[in-house]
């Protein structure tokens, strides 16, 4: 480019900028999928910085703050008098003597106030500790994510139907819990803009190495960060099974907000009878809730504007709910 700014040159430059941006996008995808800089590492950078933020470290922050209050609660009215200059120390001592009666009077009151404040804060800390212990004993734990029969198997009975329902949605599709990305892989191969989340440590690693867009976080945490109407499809498998009623209701409200007006929701879950059998995972005993009967999903979802189809698996151990919003067709 010669730099004379002719129309042709400017147009050429703009076209090249667009080409470069597309190539940068490809370069970033390549770097992430090759493991040079996984998306997870970028998120860890954010988390590392947030540890320095004023709202970080909720557990120890009050303790640290109190230690700081304690260490600065006493104000010393006796100023240092050392000096590098000849006679400086004598002059400073004289000034200190002259001012000490007044400064001492003021600092005595400030120190008393600081000590009283510190004492009050310690009482607050003690009370908060008691409340935290009481709440801890009563709180309902979040539902664990579980593997549902057929998870990880792209030939499982419900997968073809899910791919069919989601194959033509205009927008992003989320799978939770995605495990190693087995369903995401199939959706992407079918031309769907899909990604997944799974909070279980290490479960996404293999898929992430493969270059799939997978994130190690829970479904609710992730959905809270998604913009309204930001998803055209959501597949939940092993997420809702053990949820308590309140947690499930909050999730449904969140799903309603994050799905587009014509979005598709697919839920793959354990059947209640199998949940109580020996085939169910250990998490079944540790969960605050149990799976709903398939027909109960219609009871929940139809008042929210979904058209709901329910299908039970051939073994009776699991079922799938497919729910369409708005003008989406093909209720199953």
């Amino acid at each position: 480019m010669s730099g004379d700014g002719s129309v042709d040159e400017v147009e050429d430059h703009r076209a090249y900028l667009a080409q470069v941006m597309a190539e940068i996008d490809q370069e970033v995808r390549r770097r992430r999928s090759s493991g040079d800089l996984p998306a997870r590492v970028e998120r860890q950078l954010d988390e590392l910085f947030l540890e320095h933020s004023p709202v970080a470290g909720r557990g120890g922050a009050l303790e640290d703050a109190l230690a700081l209050v304690d260490s600065s609660a006493f104000i010393d009215p006796v100023v240092p008098v050392a000096s590098n200059r000849s006679g400086g120390a004598v002059v400073k001592k004289g000034l200190r003597s002259l001012n000490l009666w007044y400064v001492g009077f003021v600092t005595h009151q400030v120190s008393q106030f600081a000590a009283a404040t510190s004492r009050a804060l310690h009482l607050v800390e003690d009370r908060l500790g008691e409340l935290a212990r009481e709440l801890d004993a009563q709180k309902v734990p979040p539902a664990p994510v579980v593997d549902v029969p057929g998870d990880g198997d792209p030939t499982a009975w419900w997968v073809a139907g899910a791919l069919d329902a989601l194959g033509s949605v205009p927008g992003r599709v989320l799978h939770a819990a995605a495990s190693d990305g087995w369903l995401v892989r199939h959706l992407v191969a079918g031309g769907v803009d899909a990604y997944g989340v799974d909070p279980r440590v290490g479960r996404i690693d293999a898929g992430e190495r493969e270059g799939l867009d997978l994130r190690e976080e829970g479904a609710v945490d992730h959905l809270l960060a998604v913009e309204p109407a930001g998803l055209a499809g959501i597949v939940l498998s092993g997420v809702v099974d053990g949820m308590a009623h309140g947690e499930r209701r909050q999730l449904l409200e969140l799903l309603g907000d994050r799905l587009t007006p014509e979005g598709v929701l697919v839920i793959h879950a354990w059947s209640p009878s199998a949940w109580g059998s020996d085939a169910a995972p250990a998490e079944a005993d540790l969960s605050p809730g149990r799976p709903l009967r398939p027909s109960t999903w219609s009871h929940f979802l139809e008042p929210m504007g979904y058209r709901v189809g329910v299908e039970e698996g051939p073994s009776g151990a699991d079922y799938v709910v497919t729910a369409f919003r708005g003008r989406a067709d093909r209720p199953r």
Binding site: M1, H13, Y16, V20, E23, I24, R31, R32, L37, A39
Partner: peptide, 23 residues
Amino acid sequence: PAVVAAAVDRVLSDDRLRLGLVD
């Protein structure tokens, strides 16, 4: 970070791009 790093690398390694931006 990955996007910004790739963009900076491209600007510094692609003479046509860099000179175009400078002009």
